[in-house]
């Protein structure tokens, strides 16, 4: 299925067989613990199911101050 991915420095559409957010993040080489996964505008956990046409926005957890 096709998922639109938004990364801090990139935006692309990927073809994937990953069924969950965690699987897709692994495919992309992204550590799920240090990133926020925002699926269609809503923050989700890594075990959230993916479906065709989803938009996944990936942001780093911010800890500085």
């Amino acid at each position: 299925m096709k998922i639109k991915i938004k990364l801090p420095e990139d935006e692309k559409e990927v073809e994937t067989n990953a069924s969950k957010v965690n699987d897709l993040l692994k495919e992309l080489g992204i550590n799920p613990v240090s990133h926020l996964a925002i699926l269609n505008g809503e923050l989700v956990t890594e075990d959230e199911e993916l479906k065709e046409g989803d938009e996944l926005d990936i942001k780093e957890v911010v800890s500085g101050g």
């Binding site: 550590n31 613990v33 240090s34 926020l36 923050l43 956990t45 957890v61 911010v62 800890s63 500085g64």
Partner: peptide
């Protein structure tokens, strides 16, 4: 980059709802 969230006990999620696992490494 900057971020903010107002946590109100019993009314909103808490930080652990938002970040369930403590990241070992984040950009400083």
């Amino acid at each position: 980059v900057g971020t903010s969230f107002t946590f109100v006990p019993k009314k909103t999620p808490c930080l652990s709802c938002m970040i369930p696992k403590k990241p070992i490494c984040t950009p400083e």
